[in-house]
Computed example of a mutant assay.
Amino acid sequence: MSDIERRKREHIHVVLSGAAKHSLPAGFDALRFRHNALPEVDYEAIDLSTRFMGKPLRLPYLASSMTGGPDAAARINRAIAEAAQQLGFAMGVGSQRISLTTPERFGLNLELRRIAPDALILGNLGAVQLTHGMGLEEARRAVDELGADGLILHLNPLQEALQPEGDRNWHGVEAAISRLTRVLPVPVIAKEVGSGISAEVARRLADCGVAAIDVAGSGGTSWAAVEGKRAAGEAGEALGEIFRDWGIPTATCLAEVRAALPDMPLIASGGLRHGLDGAKAVRLGANLLGQAAALLPAAINGPEAVIAHVEAFATALRIACLATGSRNLTELGRAAVC
């Protein structure tokens, strides 16, 4: 087993254990919808469809980036792909670095496109890798090996700083993103991994040419805590605990970035627990709603479990539409709040 494989396996184990959550919430509880007791809306006719990156989706849901390496990856990705095709939501794979640097593919290949020919599928690379030996060629391969509709570049400076084998030199990453967006034939999405993207950074990313931003704020999985749990020795674990709750809450990120960039497509991820949180994220400006750790147990259990999980999320989102008198996501985005 390579070091990357071992690290990815450890990541999944720690996340599934529940030992690496932020202890502070994502901020959605502070927002309350104003209840509409006379909605004049047919529940069955509520339209949750949307378009993202030019592709139609029946649900505004993203099975967010989870894993790209261990032996469970192929099974997880197949389960999500089957469910995405059936329900009409988007999926993003975990980091493809391992599949680009080893002979193994771990399910990160065109099989996902064959399973989900109509789904929005997003590839994934670490942005810092663009200054550590990866460039346009690897980005093209990441897209081509999946038949992906776009490429996520994840931003994780805190995680890398706490990871013993992490890449800590982030000088030049912004320029590298800018170069890539100019030449890659598919849209590029910038994504944090749980510490959030501020309005200031979002503007810089927009100037770099990214097509969408996943704010991925705090309130869900803490990758500082994950790396602390992985660390050898008490000092490393203590450092992870110091930074466990570092970050900008997801709700705050959404409000800030939407105000700064009114037309930028936004993904809300980081601590979304259910469809009501999703509804609040839409009200704050999100176009797509992402879950990773919350979906992981279902993904390990197979496509039926993923379908059940996403349908439950969609049911709560639909009820929020009814109770605010919203016939669709556009109206939900303007729903009255207390």
Rank of each mutant, 00 (worst) to 15 (best):
L239W: 00
P265M: 05
Y61E: 00
L332C: 05
H132N: 13
P25G: 03
P249W: 05
E111L: 10
E174G: 07
V226C: 07
V226Y: 10
L266Q: 05
G209Q: 01
G94S: 04
G147F: 01
A127C: 07
A216Q: 12
A305G: 10
A206I: 06
L38I: 10
A119K: 08
F89I: 09
I177N: 00
T324Y: 13
V210M: 03
S64C: 11
R273V: 08
E82F: 12
A63R: 11
L272D: 01
L59V: 11
C321H: 04
L332I: 04
L122K: 05
E145K: 09
G69P: 01
S218C: 06
L322S: 03
H35P: 12
E82S: 11
R334F: 06
V41L: 03
I177F: 08
L24N: 06
A281D: 02
A148W: 04
E192H: 08
L130N: 08
R179G: 11
E165Y: 04
R179W: 05
L146F: 01
G133I: 13
I76W: 04
L122T: 09
A294D: 02
A19M: 11
C338V: 14
D29S: 14
E10F: 01
T131D: 01
L158P: 03
D263S: 14
A206K: 10
V183P: 01
G166V: 11
